[in-house]
């Protein structure tokens, strides 16, 4: 009885794992739609006000954005390695990889913070006293930039907390199916993928 109840309402562990994974994927689809609104707005703005869009994007610090892309990609790699380690039955290696992924996530946030501070000083932050823009389309671009990257940063923060949780849990590290670590890594990959779209949409649009 007890054995069979453990995975209730599922008949066995494999099915319960399948369901967990599917649930996570559906949740991520929902997250994509959350960012989809912002991407759709950016696309519309770019189609209607191409030159303004490019001019506003030109104010962003391309090299900081690029550095953050590299940081986040590496971090995602670490998360993937953590999953592999857990599957291979190496809990300590899994914990180290998660720690690396998590620290890189923090580095990403730090760079973002430096970037925001610079934008504030340069008067690129709408609504602040020093802000000055050439026209409403450029203001809207910066608005979308702050909302998009801000919402993304919230997700990065949640991802960092989740990875810390997974790294601290002995059960998660020793699970040869890497269920928790696997799902956390999936979430982290999504955060990465969203950034991979934000980067060209916002930063590369300013490259001449």
């Amino acid at each position: 009885m007890a054995e069979e109840e453990r995975f209730a309402p599922f008949a066995d562990a494999a099915r319960a794992r399948d369901a967990d994974r599917l649930g996570m994927l559906i949740f991520l689809a929902s997250e994509i739609m959350l960012f989809g609104g912002i991407f759709a707005a950016a696309l519309a703005l770019r189609l209607e006000h191409g030159p303004d869009y490019a001019a506003a994007a030109g104010h962003l610090k391309l090299w900081l954005g690029t550095a953050n892309t590299a940081i986040l990609l590496t971090s995602s790699l670490m998360a993937a390695l953590a999953v592999e380690a857990a599957r291979a039955g190496a809990p300590r290696r899994a914990a180290r990889a998660l720690l690396a992924a998590l620290l890189l996530g923090c580095a990403f946030l730090a760079v973002k913070g430096v970037e925001y501070a610079g934008e504030y000083r340069e008067g690129l932050m709408p609504g602040t006293a020093t802000a000055h823009f050439d026209g409403p389309a450029q203001t809207l671009f910066m608005n979308l930039y702050f909302v998009g990257t801000g919402l993304h940063a919230v997700h990065v923060t949640i991802g960092i907390l989740l990875m810390a949780m997974a790294a601290l849990s002995q059960r998660a590290r020793q699970d040869r199916n890497a269920m928790l670590i696997g799902n956390v890594a999936l979430y982290w990959h999504l955060v990465d993928v969203v950034w991979l779209f934000l980067y060209p949409t916002l930063y590369l649009a300013g490259v001449r």
Binding site: I26, S30, L34, G37, G127, N143
Partner: peptide, 25 residues
């Protein structure tokens, strides 16, 4: 439920951001 609700969420979030912190989308 899964695909449309988040779009409402982001929309309302933007309205709230506009009212509270002046991010004027």
């Amino acid at each position: 439920f899964v695909l449309a609700t988040p779009v409402l969420a982001i929309t309302l979030l933007l309205v709230a951001a506009e009212r509270l912190i002046g991010i004027g989308v």
